[in-house]
């Protein structure tokens, strides 16, 4: 199997994987970074969201062969000690229920707020509509993104 050089959370990793393996499974199974979650495998739920060169991307659809030389950031890498304003906001608002979708939600929110520092409610609802929360913690996600925006500006 080919070896791929990946740059994840600022560190290089050499991964021996089949070239069509989605980044999601490379992270979870090959590199033991299980914060990125599997929800649908078809780009519909957002549980697997990571940043690729700063953009929120569904890692379940992204083949490992396509992400060499790109900067990949996962939930494990957005801050030390949960200090990112988005994580702080998630904690203050006490967003999670079961928690399974939340890494993906945080990654989507983070990428979005890097682009839009002063979002309206409807900007937030649009930006976050690619992430499903089966527990429906949506009211709190909305509030937490608002709070994070105010922390980041």
């Amino acid at each position: 199997m080919p070896i791929f050089d990946l740059k994840i959370n600022g560190q290089s990793h050499a991964v021996d994987a089949d070239q069509d393996t989605p980044l999601l499974w490379v992270l979870r199974d090959h590199l033991n970074m299980v914060g990125t979650k599997f929800g649908c495998g078809i780009g519909q739920c957002g549980a697997c969201t990571v940043h690729v060169d700063g953009s929120a991307t569904r890692s379940c659809l992204l083949k490992v062969s396509m992400v060499q030389d790109m900067e990949i950031t996962t939930i494990e890498g957005i801050s030390d000690n949960a200090s990112h304003p988005v994580q702080q906001a998630w904690k203050e608002i006490d967003v999670p229920q079961c928690g399974y979708c939340q890494a993906g939600q945080i990654m989507s929110a983070t990428a979005f707020l890097n682009q839009n520092t002063n979002p309206s409610k409807s900007d937030i609802r649009d930006a976050m509509s690619g992430n499903i929360c089966r527990c429906a913690s949506y009211n709190r996600i909305e509030k937490a993104v608002e709070l994070a925006a105010s922390k980041m500006s």
Partner: peptide, 8 residues
């Protein structure tokens, strides 16, 4: 468990 959840 919030800290563990938000850090993956």
């Amino acid at each position: 468990d919030v800290d563990k959840i938000i850090t993956g």
